[in-house]
Structure formats: C-alpha cells, structure tokens
Simulated scan of single mutants.
Amino acid sequence: MHGMCFTEEHHLFRESLKDFLRKEVVPHIEKWEQSGKIERFIWEKFGEMGYFGLATPEEYGGLGLDLFYTIIFIEELQKINSGGFAAAMWAHAYLAMTHLNKNANHDQKNQYLVPSVAGKKIGCLGISEPFGGSDVAGMRTTATKEGDHYIINGSKTFITNGVYGDYIVLAAKTDPKAGNKGISLFIVNLDSEGVSANKLNKLGWRASDTAELAFDNVKVPADNRMGEEGKGFGFIMEAFALERLIMGVNAHARAEYALEYAMKYMSEREAFGRPIDQFQALRHKLVDLYSDMELCKYYNYGVTFKMNQGDYVVKEATISKLKSTKMADEVVYNCLQFLGGYGYMEDYPMARLLRDSRLGPIGGGTSEILREILGKIVIDKKEYRSPNGK
C-alpha cells in the first residue's frame, strides 16, 4: 500500500517538509505552548512554501495536488510534539479552507481563499455550540435576512483559531423551523461589530487558541453566504468525512511518533545490566502496540485512496477516526509507562502527547456519536450521499 500510494515526488515532499518544520517551527514550539499564541509570521512562511494550498486549484494560488500530499502534511505535523500547533494549521487548511474550496463562489474565493493559501488570512470553522455538541441539526445560531444583509445571533464553541483568526465559516439557521434543511453557511469576519471571543483553557493543544464565540446582531453581507439557503447541512456532512479521516491520520502519526521515541529510549535505558527493550514483557507489549498502529495507518491510507478517487467515504472515514484515536490513546499511555518516571516529566514528550492525544476521541464527533452513525449504516442500512448525489 505504501508503494502504491506514495511516489518519489511524495517522498521528496516529505523530506522537504521535515526540514522546514525542523528549522522554522520546532525552535518556537515551547514558546507557543507556553503563550497559547502562534505568531503570525509562521502562517506566512507556510503560505510561501505552498503548504496551505496543497488541495487548492492553481487558479486560486494553490498547487492542486492529490490527497496523499495532505496526508504527508498531517503526519509530519504530528511529529514535532505540539498537537496544538498542528491543529491550528490543519483547522485552517482543512476545515475552513475545505469549505472555501468546495462551496465558495469565485468572488468569495478571491476575497478569502487566495489570502488563506498565502497565510495572510487565518480561518476557522464554526459548527459546535455550547448546548448542541455533535447535534448539528439542533443548532440555535440564527441568520435572519434583512435586505442585502443577514443578522446573526448565537454562539459557537471549541473553535480552533477562533481567538486570533480573521474569519469563520459559520453555520446558522436561516429557517429555524426546517430542521437540517434550514441551515446555511456564511463567511463572517471575526473583527465584525458584535463578535466577541472567550479563550478557553484546555487540558492539551495548548499552542492553539480555542474559543467560545458570541454573535450579537452581527451584520453580514448576503454576498457572504456560501451556496443556496438551506444547503449548509449537506456541505457540513460532506466535509465531516475529510475531517474524520484527518483525525484518524493525526492519531496514527502521533502513535508512530510515540513508538519511535519509546523504542529509542528503551534501547538506551538499562536495568539489571541490559537495555529494557530486551525484557520480554516490554518487547511483546510494544510489538502489540506497533501492530495496532500499522493496521490503522494502512487502513487510513486505503480510505485516502478511495477519497482521492472521489468516493463518498463517510463510513470508512468514521471507522478511521473511531479506531485510530482509540489506538493512539492506548499507544501513548503505554509509551509513557515504558519511560517510567521520566514519562511523567514535562522535559520528555510523553506528558504533552498524552494530553494532546486525549482530544482525539472527542473532537470532530465523539466516539459515542461515531458508533451511532456506524450503527445506522451497518445495522439500519442507512445510506449517506454527498450533496452532488454520488
């Protein structure tokens, strides 16, 4: 599968990205973890390198590359030991920008997508609400049409890039009585009058800013609505497949990083006159964890292959996130144990990895919600179709 999916060009891209991250990002990670704010200059450097435009057509400043370049981007971001920094980058490129790429019109793309590719505008996605969580259809945020504007009222929470970002792709009810058929998507500037942000204090992902946002009679031009009124739910459901696959890839990549670090440590750490990787109990446990990681990784590559062909992989991507995030939590937990007391120290990577990894089974749809979705697909034979009917 690895040889089938990744070409020599992919491998060269991976090495170039590794070098960029090592030189331009890693020296700043500790500062950003402490401050909870990622400085603007790095966004523009990512833009200059083309990393935000991997999936964007050349017409709008992107590179128009296949999905496996995105997978490499996601994997390598997980291996610099800052889940928060990684989240900020991919939330911009694959949450906000996914909707701009797929659903924005030409003018909207010129105004928001082009500067997003360049790293000059930072985007976020606003779906979850304080009272709704994964219940998208039950959202309470409203957008009321008044002439050539909409008036938006409501709130969103757990919004990565919501404090320091420039715009939000916002889901709101344009017809509160129509259920999921009454949801529309808007591009809202975060400096608009009536928008306020409260920065949330998180267990992990500390380098990224996560916000609860309030919208109090926010006036948004009707030109900033994406697509037709009432089409937002379909757009959201389609994008969830990519988000869940990305969460699955995040998981297998950080598990791989944890195992690589633990194996190196165990080969150097001695107890009773020999390296601890020679003790059968530890060797066998590590091999089991490694095998689970490999299974998830190659499953995720298979889902990527199908998505890259244009398949609507809602079932497969949901399985990816459900199983990979559970696996990663188990791997990181045990790798911390392999390090003994040092695993509990902040000077070693496992403590941060443990905190950052724990969001995996929660963000982008909790594991409980994912199991219910899979129950509907597998047991009830429900079919999910993309908005274009495929």
Rank of each mutant, 00 (worst) to 15 (best):
A262H: 06
M345I: 13
Y342K: 14
C124P: 12
G165Y: 10
I187R: 05
F46W: 14
P176D: 10
L295P: 08
A251V: 03
V117D: 11
L190G: 05
M139N: 14
V332F: 02
Y290T: 07
A171M: 08
L353G: 09
S291G: 11
R283S: 00
E76H: 01
E24V: 11
K326N: 13
L289K: 06
S82V: 06
S208H: 08
D311C: 11
T7A: 07
C296K: 12
F272V: 05
M266Q: 10
I122K: 04
A143M: 02
Q280A: 11
A262D: 07
G234I: 08
A351V: 07
C335T: 15
I38P: 12
R140P: 04
G138L: 07
S16Q: 10
K181Y: 07
L339H: 03
Y344T: 07
E260L: 00
A87I: 05
M266P: 15
I183D: 08
W43A: 09
I71H: 11
E75L: 03
K264T: 08
K264H: 09
T174W: 01
E260Y: 06
Y312V: 06
A172Y: 02
R22Q: 15
G179S: 10
V220W: 03
Y333M: 02
V169G: 06
G302S: 13
M89Y: 00
